[in-house]
Design a protein around this nucleic acid. Sequence first.
DNA 1: CGGCTACTTGACATCTATCAACCGGGGTGG
DNA 2: CCACCCCGGTTGATAGATGTCAAGTAGCCG
Lengths: 227, 227
Amino acid sequence: MTRASSFFPTLFCGEACDARELAELKRLTTPIRFEAGQTIFSEGDAARSAFGLSHGVVRLYRLLPAGRRQVVAFALPGDFLAIPLADRFSFSADAVGELGVCRFPREELKRFIQTSPNVMRLLMDFAARELQLAQDQLTLLGNGSAEERVVAFLVNWRRRVARLTPISQAVPLPMRRQDIADFLGLKLETVSRTFAKLEQRDVIRIVPHGAVLTGLEQTELVAGSSE
Amino acid sequence: MTRASSFFPTLFCGEACDARELAELKRLTTPIRFEAGQTIFSEGDAARSAFGLSHGVVRLYRLLPAGRRQVVAFALPGDFLAIPLADRFSFSADAVGELGVCRFPREELKRFIQTSPNVMRLLMDFAARELQLAQDQLTLLGNGSAEERVVAFLVNWRRRVARLTPISQAVPLPMRRQDIADFLGLKLETVSRTFAKLEQRDVIRIVPHGAVLTGLEQTELVAGSSE
DNA sequence: CGGCTACTTGACATCTATCAACCGGGGTGG
DNA sequence: CCACCCCGGTTGATAGATGTCAAGTAGCCG
């Protein structure tokens, strides 16, 4: 999506983080680029680095026995790819499209965080927000029909994307159907069929790498109350 | 379960929390008891208080349109009932059986947390652990069959309970079938049937308010890797 | 232009939800 | 002390939703 390095502006700048802290954080950071499909880290890896997403989209997922996969979240610019405290990654991350991240040496970042209440606070807020998102998703997977899941996904995704790149007719969907399916606990055929059904009812319109959302506001949502 | 006030020992004492901090926390706290079925707080309420569970079990849940309900988690002694930062509760909490909590005035607790890196750290760890649990659950709801869900629930629940009350033949299940169903995204009939099926295979034995787990270790688990 | 990959569509199978009856224990009141 | 009732739980029959398998289409890149 946006080309500019927007990790710092999005996560740290806005609110409670003074110039000195920001300078220190920038000192720790190394920008890295990844191509579509490349893996940033894998579940179980020792977390020597922490990552903040600058631009692009990342899918965070777990692999399960029998070739199943659960996409835990899609990360957008400004998100940490994992909370930088645990010693190991509890999920894998790879690039949906071409993207840029800020890499931090985790030990140093951790030490810095400990000394800076502001940044600690920011991280805590991030963790709380992630927890809320995970619980929304949990609620959706526990109760929603295929259609409710797909609709909730589109609405939530649009809201998150809109915050970063103000306006555009179509909501971009850079991830594959399979990714959406694994995120929603459905099969890709079901996602495809559900899109088709919604399109027939003129609720959405599918376009090459996205969808135009027309009459979605009123749909009874099972999750997505946050903010 | 255990009768003693075990919120402090479980959450704060073990690790990185000095005597002065502990004393300050204890000063802030008021112990309260609840009877089975009573509501501790409701989704949307202003979070004037924070709660730590001393003994008993709490179900944390959201109510949805059309009378649906999602149990987000079961809290055990030592758990916070919510992360004490948000201004409003994002789910409801009520007592599964008779129980005791430590109530904190949230603003004061928050202020204290900000000044104590140790406690902040502890809270951060708690949030990270909760996030991990939520993601485990998400993975389970996204991919597991009814049987996998029930088995994973029993195994995870046993592990958590065992940590608090070392040994007992049967795993206590103080919550209702409906609670388990709403936690696992199933209907209570399905939970009941699945229990029956597992019992026929001698994998478990259902007893009045619990279950004896016999041959579960080997079952292919979709979630529950944590620790 | 050819081949690959993502996506769509169709027919059918399977699993869980739904609706409904029934069982059993604990508590209350006669 | 017993009987009844209520609630939680179990079991059965059936239906509906999503998964599975398979064929076919479209867009992209070499």
